[in-house]
Computed example of a mutant assay.
Amino acid sequence: MQLTNIGNKNITSLEILEQINFFRKQEGNRAELKHYDLLKIIRDEFEEEIGQGKISESFYKNSQNKEQPMFELTTAQAKQVLVRESKFVRKAIIKKLEELENKPMTIQEIMIQTLKEQEKLNFRMDSIESKVDNEIRVDHGEQRKIQRAVGTRVYQRMDIENNHDNKKSMFQSLYRDLKNRFGVASYRDIKRKDLTNVLEYISTWIEPAELRSA
């Protein structure tokens, strides 16, 4: 049995669960701990730390490709969770954790850990982008008016520039111009501005920006 999260000495609740059930079986204990029960233990044990944001819930995808919660703990926190296990299980896993703490990383292990961290970052970014997309699709009358106005100007720009292959970059450029003009951090904030001023400004987009500035 090997613990895999060795890059920053953090252990996932899934890895802790695997170790607990492995050594429970060795001990002759047929009671298998379920992940949702382990999460209850972690939430109870670290209620204060979770409330303060010192320990954050993360997510993984199960065999059905459904998003499920999990925690990443330091080795010290993992040992604290194990207090509720039998002496046999506790001593066996603590020994594994101490080996983990003292084990130097190979180049391959560093690369694996880096890829895992990148996957987590990508997953979080995808979740954020999906959330933003869903917010933009909410039925806001003013929002839709702005979207239609921008779309109209994009197609006018395409005809003027005789370029029908770069629609996406035009949308991005015009929205960036709109955000800069009205001092907002993101597109969904534009709806909070005065609609008349926004639509009037969009109407100046008939010519390409480089022609208007000439």
Rank of each mutant, 00 (worst) to 15 (best):
V138I: 11
K131H: 15
Q172D: 14
Y187M: 01
H35D: 06
T74L: 00
A78F: 07
L121K: 12
K103N: 15
E135P: 00
N65H: 13
E85S: 14
R24L: 00
I41N: 08
Q156F: 05
V150P: 01
E99C: 04
E15M: 05
E99F: 07
F71D: 04
I136W: 02
N62T: 03
Q52C: 13
V89I: 09
F123R: 15
L97W: 02
V138G: 01
I128K: 09
I190T: 02
R176N: 08
Q77S: 04
K103W: 06
F46P: 08
F171L: 05
G7M: 07
R212I: 00
R176I: 06
K40P: 05
K95M: 09
E85V: 09
S86P: 03
V83A: 11
N29Y: 07
Y201G: 00
N134G: 13
L33Y: 08
F23R: 10
Y187T: 13
Q26Y: 09
Q172R: 14
F171E: 00
E49G: 04
N102L: 10
K91S: 13
D165L: 15
L100Q: 04
G53E: 08
T75C: 09
R148P: 00
K87E: 14
K193F: 04
Y155R: 12
H140I: 05
S13R: 02
T4C: 12
A209L: 15
D194A: 11
A31K: 12
V83K: 15
I11P: 05
E129R: 15
E18V: 12
H140Q: 04
G183D: 11
R148M: 09
I94Y: 02
S203M: 02
R30P: 04
E45S: 14
I93E: 03
E117P: 06
R124Q: 13
S13N: 00
K9W: 00
I202A: 00
F71I: 00
K9I: 02
L121M: 11
G183W: 01
A209D: 06
F22L: 05
Y60V: 00
N162W: 10
K66I: 10
Q113G: 14
H35P: 05
I110H: 15
D177P: 04
T75R: 07
R24G: 01
K25T: 01
L39Y: 05
Q77A: 03
I190S: 03
K87R: 14
A214V: 11
N122G: 08
V184Q: 11
T204F: 10
S169Y: 10
E72M: 15
I160A: 06
K116D: 05
E210V: 12
Q19G: 14
E85L: 09
F171T: 00
R43Q: 14
K131S: 14
V198N: 05
N29F: 04
E109W: 12
A214W: 09
Y36R: 10
L178C: 06
L178Q: 10
E48A: 14
R137M: 12
A78D: 09
Q156R: 07
N29W: 08
L97H: 02
E161G: 02
V89T: 08
L115N: 01
L82G: 13
K96E: 12
V83S: 06
A92F: 09
Q172P: 02
L82V: 04
L174S: 06
E48P: 07
Q26I: 01
Q113M: 09
R148N: 08
G141W: 14
E15F: 01
Q147H: 11
E135M: 10
N134W: 15
D133P: 00
V184M: 11
Y155D: 03
E48V: 15
L174C: 08
